[in-house]
Design a binder for these strands. Structure first.
Length: 181
DNA sequence: TTCGTGATACCC
DNA sequence: GGTATCACGAAC
């Protein structure tokens, strides 16, 4: 479980980090909403690597979104990181995001990649170098994890594979409460 | 609620 | 080559 773990990046001597408060699971080639559903391609190739690889994709003309590959090689399971609670390098993040509101620095998948300085060139890299994954500072009790439908997809909308930490103010907001059709 | 934005995939 | 699609965000 990635919730509660910390993602830390080092670029140009600048350190930024945040605690994961919101994720979405994508279950490989059998999941119609997964980027791996239509088969292997140059873009989704990192998803087929073993757990620990990073898959970054570009979407809607301006956003990069970051996934952590979690399954065995060839399985294409990945977890989309949707929101972080900033923990280190707030000043650097504010500079990259051009705003000073801690609450909104990383409250969305495109926002957090911008705040952490992650872009397409990091797709296919491995955790541990420029991007590190640190263990949870404190474990999250099962009762404090909320599961709900994933956001922004048109297929398999009924699968409750979006996970957030209960009552955490740093989760993404604008579409968070959107009801299913 | 709408609109900007560009990489990708797939079809010619 | 052209174009529809897209796991979004910010401005209205």
């Amino acid at each position: 479980m990635l919730l509660g773990c910390e993602i830390e990046t080092h670029f140009n001597g600048q350190i930024t980090a945040g605690r994961i408060v919101e994720t979405e699971a994508y279950q490989g080639t059998a999941d119609p909403a997964s980027h791996a559903f239509t088969g292997r391609s140059k873009r989704n190739e990192p998803m087929y690597q073993p757990g620990g690889y990073v898959y970054v994709y570009f979407s809607y003309g301006m956003h990069c979104c970051m996934n952590i590959v979690t399954g065995p090689e060839g399985n294409a399971q990945a977890v989309l990181i949707r929101a972080l609670e900033p923990t280190q390098g707030m000043d650097v993040m504010e500079g990259r995001r051009h705003l000073t509101s801690k609450l909104n620095l990383c409250s969305g998948p495109g926002k957090l990649t911008q705040a952490l300085g992650i872009d397409l060139s990091l797709s296919g890299s491995v955790l541990g170098d420029s991007i590190a994954l640190n263990p949870a500072i404190e474990p999250i009790d099962r009762e404090n994890i909320i599961a709900g439908p994933r956001i922004g997809i048109s297929k398999a909308r009924d699968m409750p594979w979006r996970f957030t930490i209960r009552s955490n103010p740093y989760v993404s907001k604008s579409r968070a409460q959107k009801a299913l059709p």
